[in-house]
Design a protein around this nucleic acid. Structure first.
Length: 847
RNA sequence: GCGGAAGUGGUGAAAUGGCAAACACACCAGCCUUAGGAGCUGGCGCCCAAAAGGCUUGCGGGUUCAAGUCCCGCCUUCCGCACCA
């Protein structure tokens, strides 16, 4: 067989063969039912939007998940590894406009194309559980959930200021606005509009979403921090100031009992330092005060305009603080002090109460504002540690809570913390305030004025008002026949067959809601559907979900840290409260992989640096492409795509192929007795093999540094190749050859599944390699008998000595002192101390 | 401004506090030839003609017998947050 002509490594042929084989045998990748004896493992990668083209970011994401899934199969787990399509969304409508293709057709075509790409790359998905969110059998459950939430009071409708993307011609959620621009159209400024919207009451879970983060130890700290910031909890108090009666000044201040101004503050302890009350320009009271004052009204409108512009520019923090005084005053509830009421552009109507007490001495923003307008700055907190002045340095504003109250009447001398407690109590007893917690998180606006989404299952009846669609009339089907135009408003409103209906309550004529749902709803619960994808009675079977959940490992990009990942957590908690699941969180562990970049920049069409997976696969094969994606960098770091690197991996796989096919006949031969001669090369090769198994196995359990796993396999192959002469001469016993090559195939299986499967077959492996057992490292075989110990003098490396692996300190010391280089160096000096770390190093301290 | 991550050869990178640069890419030299996007051998951090030797993990300190790794200060880059009362 040494003369046998070498067959060249032909990835295209091998991959085609196995792709067909796997397609014909879908059960290979199917999870066993919940009754399985095996331990379960749910590995999930984020489902893609079916744009029609897989990009390298997907390939990397899915290569990581696939390596894990395959390894877990081989380790004997019952693995659920599904895939689906986040198939609703605006691009389908844009494509419809552009190519005159209906969104459904366009989407289905893209799904088919991407599925082909995924099969071509060899991801081990169970296609029997595939879900497509734009199909009625999926989105009907969005509608069903909407109705359940409505029953629970988690859905409401209100007119509100919304983010409007002119490009999308629809509303965006707060989470979808990035730097004042649309998350899909980075150059398109988001506008503010007033519209009637459906909201999900995610804020009802704000506290729990926050608390849960502490327990999500398997999630990256970065993501948890981002979510904490997003939820933005702040603890403080709400307290009323009273509006002074107009024209009451002459007779002494008189408070209006009906008109209160409620402010939110985290520093109630500084209230005696409040020297003005500041209202947001859109505060209802402002409109009332400005009603009879055209000048004020004009100025307020300017402030509103400034805020709007800043918001649209995404630079709310950057605008210069402006304000305008009103002619009215507010009275401090604690001491009756009279302070002016201003309207200021740095006060936001949608946070807290839209009004603040301004304490310039103890708040930076108030300080800036008061300095500008000459408003009194009154210090009411005395630092415990006297603040040191450098000449001319400002003491104020003093922001720390490490101080005691001054200028605060009966509260003088209390610490800030004590004062906060006391003042809150007093406010509560006096009926003018209470402790309060405010969140930055807003309710989730889900209405979209688009066609390609889940219809909101509500009916507007002239008589009965808003009526939910009864469960037995679900799904509300998205009509197929529709003309997509670029006109504003909901496209569905222009489809009479859809709009016109009868009221489920009175049977009279009624109109359907024509807005559709935000597509983030689709992805908020899709991973539950995978567990029971064909269910026609419910979104999924609770018992099955209970078996699979939580997801053991979720893998995706960090760009979803606050959108998808916060909505998903919310949805899980709602389902738990509906009694559908028992887990509090969807995923035990989350891994966020780095971006794929090219020439130092994110791949994008505009930069023209996009690398197509199809090209890579065509040139170098699927195995080389996905293996390079794992080899080029650790998975959590950004990866710079270098085509030469893919070529290198492909050449490596070619070496593996030649080596394995060359000695496959030996590995398969029954001739050799299983006795393994203790021949030097064989022992050494087996040692390397077992070291490699140990390294890779450990990495899968811990760090996931698949780049070094691939490197370890390369080292192993380099050693095998260096032993080619011995192999060719038959000096390595056949059972050892078999062990070496079969194990090599097993180790490759998570990374290069096509080649691994082919070699497994050629090496006479039983059954599918995916069902073969992951190799075990035998420590006694992996152990070295002799090791090298570095010898240092005063910490500097001088020499290296070889000693037996288990050598004790004494032996190592003797060997080190006997070393010639060491003797030369130490000859004229006194050895003061010898530090020996057995198995590690020797250090001689000499003087 | 606040929070986080990262800075190591020409490049991607590796290194439980114990031989810095494994494994690759690129490059150089040679061999082979069925002339291939092939294969094989060797070289490849910097200084020095070479050897010997010296230097080297963004910068400056420190801890330690020993620091890329731990601590303190600074610089740079990237990411997130940023009038949130």
């Amino acid at each position: 067989m040494a003369e046998e002509k070498e067959q060249r490594y032909d990835p295209a042929a091998i991959e085609r063969k196995w792709q067909e084989r796997w397609a014909a045998e879908p059960a290979l990748y199917a999870a066993e039912p919940a009754s399985s004896k095996k331990p379960k493992y749910y590995v999930l990668e984020m489902l893609p939007y079916p744009s029609g083209q897989l990009h390298m970011g997907h390939v990397r994401n899915y290569a990581i998940g696939d390596a894990l899934a395959r390894q877990m199969w081989m380790r004997g787990y019952n693995v659920l590894h599904p895939m689906g399509w986040d198939a609703f969304g605006l691009p389908a409508e844009n494509a419809a406009l552009k190519n005159n293709t209906p969104p459904r057709e366009w989407t289905q075509g893209n799904i088919a194309a991407m599925k082909r790409q995924m099969r071509r790359i060899g991801f081990s998905y169970d296609w029997a559980t595939e879900i497509t969110t734009c199909l009625p059998d999926y989105y009907r459950w969005n509608q069903w959930f909407f109705l359940r939430m409505l029953e629970k009071g988690l859905v409401y409708r209100k007119k509100s200021k919304v983010n409007w993307c002119p490009e999308c011609a629809t509303v965006l959620a707060n989470e979808q606005v990035v730097d004042g621009c649309c998350w899909r159209h980075e150059d398109t400024k988001v506008e503010q509009r007033d519209l009637e919207q459906w909201f999900l009451r995610i804020t009802a879970y704000a506290q729990e979403l926050l608390d849960g983060l502490d327990k999500l130890e398997g999630w990256p700290e970065k993501v948890r921090t981002m979510q904490r910031n997003w939820i933005g909890r702040s603890e403080g108090a709400e307290v009323d100031f009273f509006l002074e009666e107009q024209g009451a000044r002459e007779q002494g201040s008189k408070r209006s009992e009906s008109q209160r101004i409620r402010v939110f503050t985290t520093r109630i302890d500084t209230i005696f330092g409040a020297t003005s009350v500041q209202l947001a320009p859109e505060h209802p009271l402002v409109a009332a005060l400005a009603a009879g004052d055209p000048k004020l009204k004009a100025k307020v409108n300017e402030l509103i305009e400034e805020q709007r512009k800043a918001r649209e520019a995404g630079d709310v923090g950057g605008i210069e603080k402006h304000g305008v005084p009103t002619s009215r005053f507010a009275l401090n509830s604690y001491n009756g002090e009279r302070v002016p009421i201003w309207v200021a552009n740095y006060i936001l109507m949608d946070y807290g109460t839209g009004a603040i007490m301004s304490v310039p001495a103890h708040d930076e923003r108030d300080f800036e504002f008061a300095t500008k307008y000459g408003i009194e700055i009154r210090q009411v907190i005395q630092p415990v540690q006297p603040v040191e002045y450098e000449d001319g340095a400002e003491l104020l504003p003093f922001l720390s809570e490490d101080g005691v109250l001054v200028n605060s009447g009966e509260y003088d001398g209390l610490t800030c913390a004590e004062a906060q407690r006391r003042l809150q109590e007093v406010a509560e007893q006096g009926g003018f305030g209470n402790a309060a917690v405010t969140f930055r998180l807003k309710d989730w606006g889900i209405s979209r004025q688009r066609y390609w989404g889940t219809p909101i299952p509500m009916i507007h009846c002239e008589r009965d008002g808003l009526v939910p669609v009864p469960d037995d009339q679900l799904p509300v089907i998205l009509p197929n026949k529709i003309e997509i135009t670029q006109q504003g408003g909901s496209p569905l409103a222009r489809v009479p067959e859809f709009v016109n209906t009868t009221c489920p309550r009175c049977g009279g004529p009624a109109r359907r809601e024509t807005d559709t749902m935000d597509t983030f709803i689709d992805s908020s619960w899709y991973f539950y559907r995978y567990t029971d994808a064909k269910d026609t009675k419910a979104p999924f079977d609770s018992a099955i979900a209970q078996y699979w959940f939580p997801i053991d490992q979720y893998i995706g990009g960090v760009e979803h840290a606050i959108l998808h990942l916060i909505y998903s957590r919310f949805w899980t908690k709602v389902m738990r409260d509906l009694g559908m699941v028992t887990n509090d969180e969807p995923a035990e562990r989350l891994f966020t992989q780095g971006m794929v970049i090219k020439d130092g920049a994110k791949m994008s069409k505009s930069k023209g640096n996009v690398v197509s997976p199809d090209d890579m696969v065509a040139r170098y094969g699927a195995d080389a492409t996905r293996m390079y994606a794992l080899f080029a960098a650790p998975p959590d770091r950004d990866l710079d795509w270098q085509e030469d690197g893919v070529a290198g991996v492909s050449r490596f796989l070619g070496r593996v192929w030649r080596l394995a096919t060359k000695y496959a006949p030996v590995a398969r031969s029954e001739a050799a007795k299983p006795s393994i001669a203790a021949n030097g090369s064989a022992v050494q090769l087996r040692r390397k093999l077992h070291q490699t198994i140990a390294k890779i196995t450990l990495d899968f359990e811990g760090r996931w540094h698949f780049n070094t796993c691939v490197a370890a396999i390369m080292e192993l192959v380099n050693e095998l190749q260096a032993a080619d002469a011995q192999l060719a001469a038959g000096e390595i016993p056949a059972p050892v050859v078999r062990e070496l090559l079969r194990t090599l195939a097993l180790l490759l299986a998570p990374f290069a599944p096509f080649l691994a499967a082919e070699l497994w077959e050629q090496l006479g492996g039983e059954g599918a390699i995916l069902r073969a057992s992951w190799p075990r490292s035998d420590p006694s075989l992996a152990k070295e008998d002799e090791i090298e110990i570095p010898v240092q003098i005063n910490g500097k490396l001088i020499s290296v000595v070889r000693v037996a692996a288990g050598a004790d300190a004494k032996t190592i010391e003797a060997a080190a002192l006997a070393d010639e280089k060491v003797r030369l160096r130490a000859a004229t000096k006194t050895v003061a101390k010898v530090i020996v770390v057995p198995g590690r190093a020797v250090n001689l301290v000499v003087k």
